[in-house]
């Protein structure tokens, strides 16, 4: 599953609120924690590697 930055952050926020509720089993908590840790690494990576792209609207129009 490939998520963009916005989706990744949204998922990370979800994980935080689920973990903070604390109703989950230890096993589920650890699973979520692992996912959250991976996501935050991924987000940091996305931010550090981002490079601005500039396109002319004419190219957009030509490429449909």
């Amino acid at each position: 599953m490939k998520m963009n930055y916005e989706e990744s952050v949204k998922r990370l926020e979800e994980i935080v609120s689920k973990l903070e509720e604390g109703n989950l089993s230890l096993e589920d908590s650890l699973k979520l924690y692992e996912e959250g840790a991976l996501l935050s690494d991924k987000c940091r990576k996305m931010l550090s590697e981002a490079k601005l792209k500039i396109t002319n609207i004419n190219e957009v129009a030509e490429n449909g």
Binding site: V9, E13, I15, V16, L24, S29, Y33, G36, A37, L47
Partner: peptide
Amino acid sequence: INELASYINLLNGKINKAINSKI
């Protein structure tokens, strides 16, 4: 982007805190 990075760090800190308190 710096604010975004701080926000990610904040979220990351929160999951660490949550899992530690769970443990």
